[in-house]
Simulated assay, not measured.
Amino acid sequence: MAIKEYKLQEIGKFQNYEIVFSKYHVSTDNMEAHKMPNFYPKSGNYFPKNSILMSNIRPYFNKVWYSDREGSKSPNVLCFIVENKNAMSKYIYYLIRGTKFNNFWSKTSKGTTMPVGDKNALLNYKFKLPNLEDQQEIINIIEPFERLKIYISNFIDKIEILFLKIGETSKILGKMKDFNIKFEKGMNINSKFISNQKSNILFINVSAINNKFNKWLINNDIKENVEYGDIILSLDGTIGIVNNFLKGFNGYGYKISSKNIDNSIIYCSLIDRRNKQIMIDNSTGSVIKHSLNSKNELVLLDIKKEEINKLFELQITYKKWLIYLNKIIKKLIEIYIY
């Protein structure tokens, strides 16, 4: 394998194109790590197809996306364009999303509370680049796992749509409180035990419930109290977010459970538009919303567990597969690119 050392600035550059309006807008908020963002329409700097987008706020989140379309982006999303004919854009994307590059990106960032990456430092990042044939061979090894990730992600989304449709066609059975459904409030702990540096135990705050993980526990004596398949609800800050796939320590959410009602039925009920409206109608506060009173008003839908349990189990299983696939891809990048 013929290998030559380069600096990132010898491969391409960060581009700032003209302002355009696009229905495919990418910001630091809607970007996810290595996954297509949840787009929304807005004006921003243009980005072309096959560019590498990087959220430059809190680099340790490793929000890097290879664009499969053109669109607009916010200023804190960097757009890197590969210009060197000896480099393939997809290969450089895998290099940039790798652990080694991300550690360099985080180490050279500026600021403490909300660190920002240093573009000049990134352009001086050194790495070894194989010839085009070997780059393509490595891409061919990783790509099937990436395609499988997209397929599974789409399947998970379709199951969620099915949950919503089942809820829409279901009648209200009664209020949750009348079925002894338990709302267990999370426990706030000493801030010195919480860090924004990733560790083994996720601290479940409102951001985590919204799948934007930003806090972890650094005290090994504190044990996890939430497992995959448990139902966590946010009634503070961003109210009405429901998550069935968190594992960690519950700090700011409500863990919803029952000895008699299956989690699948509780989950489908909570994401229903009627319960969403109840939480909104019972919210208080102007800047930071709270909807604690809605606990007594939330309703349980009349759903047969045979109709939904298998779907719920399948969604949890597929979400676990995504974790395994991410680990496999991460390992392949470490083996073949570093």
Score class of each variant (00 low, 15 high):
residue 64 V to D: 05
residue 64 V to T: 04
residue 64 V to Y: 02
residue 64 V to R: 03
residue 64 V to G: 02
residue 64 V to W: 02
residue 65 W to E: 11
residue 65 W to V: 12
residue 66 Y to G: 00
residue 67 S to I: 09
residue 67 S to C: 07
residue 67 S to N: 10
residue 68 D to R: 10
residue 68 D to H: 10
residue 68 D to G: 13
residue 68 D to V: 07
residue 69 R to H: 13
residue 69 R to K: 15
residue 69 R to W: 04
residue 70 E to S: 10
residue 70 E to Y: 08
residue 70 E to N: 06
residue 70 E to P: 00
residue 71 G to T: 04
residue 71 G to N: 03
residue 72 S to W: 07
residue 72 S to G: 11
residue 72 S to M: 07
residue 73 K to D: 07
residue 73 K to W: 06
residue 73 K to R: 15
residue 74 S to Q: 06
residue 74 S to E: 02
residue 74 S to Y: 01
residue 74 S to W: 02
residue 75 P to V: 05
residue 75 P to K: 02
residue 75 P to N: 09
residue 76 N to I: 05
residue 77 V to K: 03
residue 77 V to S: 03
residue 77 V to W: 03
residue 78 L to E: 04
residue 78 L to V: 02
residue 78 L to H: 00
residue 78 L to F: 11
residue 79 C to H: 04
residue 79 C to S: 06
residue 79 C to F: 00
residue 79 C to L: 00
residue 79 C to G: 02
residue 79 C to K: 02
residue 80 F to C: 01
residue 80 F to N: 01
residue 80 F to M: 00
residue 80 F to R: 00
residue 81 I to E: 06
residue 81 I to H: 00
residue 81 I to V: 08
residue 81 I to T: 06
residue 82 V to G: 04
residue 82 V to K: 05
residue 82 V to Y: 03
residue 82 V to C: 05
residue 83 E to T: 12
residue 83 E to Q: 11
residue 83 E to R: 02
residue 85 K to M: 11
residue 85 K to R: 15
residue 85 K to E: 15
residue 85 K to A: 14
residue 86 N to F: 12
residue 86 N to V: 05
residue 87 A to M: 06
residue 88 M to V: 15
residue 88 M to Q: 15
residue 88 M to R: 15
residue 89 S to I: 12
residue 89 S to E: 15
residue 90 K to Y: 11
residue 90 K to G: 06
residue 91 Y to E: 08
residue 91 Y to I: 08
residue 91 Y to M: 07
residue 91 Y to A: 07
residue 92 I to Y: 01
residue 92 I to M: 05
residue 92 I to T: 03
residue 92 I to V: 14
residue 93 Y to S: 05
residue 93 Y to Q: 09
residue 93 Y to F: 14
residue 93 Y to P: 08
residue 95 L to V: 09
residue 96 I to E: 08
residue 96 I to P: 08
residue 96 I to Y: 06
residue 97 R to P: 10
residue 97 R to Y: 13
residue 97 R to F: 10
residue 97 R to I: 12
residue 98 G to T: 04
residue 99 T to W: 14
residue 99 T to H: 15
residue 99 T to C: 12
residue 100 K to S: 13
residue 100 K to P: 00
residue 100 K to Y: 13
residue 100 K to M: 09
residue 100 K to G: 06
residue 101 F to A: 01
residue 102 N to C: 03
residue 102 N to M: 04
residue 102 N to G: 02
residue 103 N to M: 07
residue 103 N to H: 06
residue 104 F to L: 01
residue 104 F to G: 01
residue 104 F to P: 01
residue 104 F to D: 04
residue 104 F to S: 01
residue 105 W to R: 12
residue 105 W to L: 14
residue 105 W to E: 15
residue 106 S to Q: 14
residue 106 S to G: 10
residue 106 S to F: 13
residue 107 K to N: 10
residue 108 T to P: 10
residue 108 T to R: 07
residue 109 S to T: 11
residue 109 S to K: 10
residue 109 S to E: 11
residue 110 K to A: 11
residue 111 G to Y: 02
residue 111 G to Q: 08
residue 111 G to I: 04
residue 112 T to V: 15
residue 113 T to W: 09
residue 113 T to Q: 12
residue 113 T to R: 13
residue 113 T to F: 13
residue 113 T to N: 14
residue 114 M to Q: 14
residue 114 M to S: 12
residue 114 M to E: 06
residue 114 M to F: 15
residue 114 M to T: 13
residue 114 M to G: 06
residue 114 M to V: 14
